[in-house]
């Protein structure tokens, strides 16, 4: 057992996979000598050398294109995009090329690649360096999408993503970088497409992702003090999506909430609510409720960003207000 921060877990997980597979390489801006802008790749250059840990120019299309070309010719790749907002700069590569090539070629091309990127707000970087963009990727057929909430999950889901033969977009949350926990000894390998029940409960189900998971857990603690028992599910993987765990939970609790950092419209929670309201309709005792950031670009000021992103208090109050049937 070792105590590891979320930030350290990224390099730890990558190193585990690079030791296992000598073909695996990574590329990105400032990832080698500098150890990454978020210090998530510290030590990798020293252990694996500059041919396997490559610094690149500020050329997001060339970075992701190179990852694709290498992957399709038998080299598994981890590419880093410094901020997830920059996905927009290379969206053609991700949405049009990487996501579609396997289908368009009827299976001729296999793309074992992972795109890692720092996602989310809470660090006062303003609208262009704080977005939660996992939904952008979730809506494109052909991409797998993962967003871990804990250091252990960072390591295990990193391994699962690298070993998966399909392209995976791996969202590392900026606001979680400093959080830490004891992680198990030995090789850690998790499974894509599996949600985790983080807290068991009987009165309502809360589905949350990444930085919203600890907030949902804290809110559940406050609700428990009021005699309300919330089950908190860490969704972890948006594609593939573990709807079974969520539907089973709703069958037990009869109420469904989502906590999403993304702006309101078309968040992953909307898809989950649609699934729950269709497939668990007769289990429901009340309306499904989504708790999200308002549909605005994220502001920079601390006070405003805190008002925008769902807080523990907001989750607690929303549940308290609506669980009795109020809108």
């Amino acid at each position: 057992m070792a105590e590891l921060s979320y930030r350290e877990a990224v390099a730890y997980g990558i190193a585990q996979e690079m030791r296992r597979d000598p073909r695996l390489v990574m590329l990105g801006e400032d990832i080698a000598a500098a150890g990454g802008v978020f210090k998530t790749t510290v030590g990798l250059l020293e252990e694996f050398g500059p041919d396997r840990v490559r610094d690149t120019p500020i050329s997001e299309q060339a970075i992701i294109g190179a990852a694709m070309g290498a992957a399709m010719t038998g080299i598994p790749v981890i590419a880093e995009l410094m901020f997830s907002d920059f996905i927009a700069v290379t969206w053609d590569m991700i949405a049009n090329e990487i996501a579609k090539t396997r289908y368009m070629t009827n299976g001729q091309v296999t793309l074992p690649l992972v795109i890692r990127t720092a996602n989310g707000g809470g660090v006062r970087f303003g609208a262009q360096h704080s977005q939660s963009v996992e939904n952008w990727c979730m809506m494109i057929p052909g991409l797998k999408v993962v967003a871990p909430a804990t250091p252990t999950d960072v390591v295990g889901l990193m391994a699962a993503s690298v070993r998966d033969p399909d392209p995976v977009i791996f969202f590392e949350h900026k606001a979680l970088m400093a959080t830490s926990e004891e992680i198990p000894d030995g090789e850690i390998v998790d499974t894509l497409g599996t949600a985790r029940i983080r807290r068991e409960g009987t009165d309502l189900t809360i589905a949350a992702l990444a930085a919203m998971v600890p907030r949902a857990l804290e809110a559940a603690e406050m609700l428990a003090a009021d005699g309300i028992s919330a089950e908190v599910i860490d969704v972890r993987s948006l594609v593939p999506l573990d709807t079974r765990t969520i539907l089973q939970s709703v069958a037990k609790t009869g109420r469904f909430y989502t906590v999403e950092e993304n702006p309101r419209v078309l968040g992953w929670g909307a898809e989950l609510v649609s699934i729950v309201s269709h497939e668990a309709f007769w289990d429901l005792d009340g309306p499904c409720v989504r708790i999200t950031t308002p549909h605005i670009p994220l502001p920079a000021a601390s006070s405003l960003e805190d008002l925008a992103i769902p807080s523990v208090q907001k989750i607690y109050e929303t549940v308290k207000r609506t669980i009795g049937g109020a809108p």
Partner: peptide, 23 residues
């Protein structure tokens, strides 16, 4: 290795295949 219909992308992808051959 493919015919690409969005202008420009495949130059970057060709680099990746060349990089892979180099490695």
């Amino acid at each position: 290795m493919g015919s690409y219909a969005i202008i420009g992308a495949h130059l970057c992808i060709a680099n990746g295949a060349a990089w892979s051959a180099q490695m």
